[in-house]
């Protein structure tokens, strides 16, 4: 159990973005986990605990998990930098002349912190916890396809945000 504390805290931190709330959420989650362990039937304790941590984080904010995203609207939104419908498709914009691989750690982490939480959480679960789409779908309680589209959209947003920040920091 104790090995999961770091994973739990990391997810909580990325959801609430400050130490005090993250600590509260993790403590609360472990208490709940203890209280409900009798109902646990799965074989993946980490994913189960992370789901509880996630709920605790949303509860702390007085939100329902997944609040703030409108699935129907998801794919309709055109992101900045993407060309409008009817042209050659979303990829055929001018290539960015900024090489994002040179973005520094601070900038990247700040850009992720500022992503809407529904995208931030799937990114963190995938990139840091290396959970599979299936596990993420279970934790977030959405269909697999939604995990896929949120990751896709989250990464597109993140890319835009990093490029924008890099442009701001080093104006040509």
């Amino acid at each position: 159990m104790m090995p999961h504390v770091d994973a739990a805290y990391n997810l909580a931190w990325w959801l609430v973005r400050n130490r005090a709330d993250a600590e509260d959420a993790v403590q609360e989650a472990f208490l709940r986990a203890y209280k409900f362990f009798g109902s646990f039937r799965g074989d993946d304790g980490r994913a189960w605990l992370l789901a509880i941590v996630r709920n605790a984080c949303y509860a702390l904010r007085g939100q329902a998990p997944g609040a703030g995203v409108n699935e129907e609207f998801d794919e309709q939104v055109h992101l900045p930098g993407m060309v409008a419908e009817g042209s050659n498709g979303p990829f055929c914009r001018n290539p960015e002349d900024i090489a994002i691989q040179h973005a520094d750690r601070e900038l990247v982490n700040r850009a992720i912190e500022e992503l809407p939480v529904v995208f931030r959480e799937v990114l963190v679960m995938r990139e840091i916890e290396e959970l599979s789409y299936k596990e993420i779908a279970r934790i977030v309680d959405v269909p697999l396809g939604t995990v896929m589209s949120r990751l896709a959209r989250g990464r597109r947003l993140l890319h835009e945000a990093i490029v924008a920040r890099m442009k701001k920091e080093s104006p040509k």
Binding site: D6, W13, A103, V108, I112, E127, L158
Partner: peptide, 13 residues
């Protein structure tokens, strides 16, 4: 690659 390299892991205090 950037995410993998730069994303911060927040270990529990």
């Amino acid at each position: 690659d950037l995410e993998a390299r730069q994303l911060r892991f927040h270990a529990a205090p």
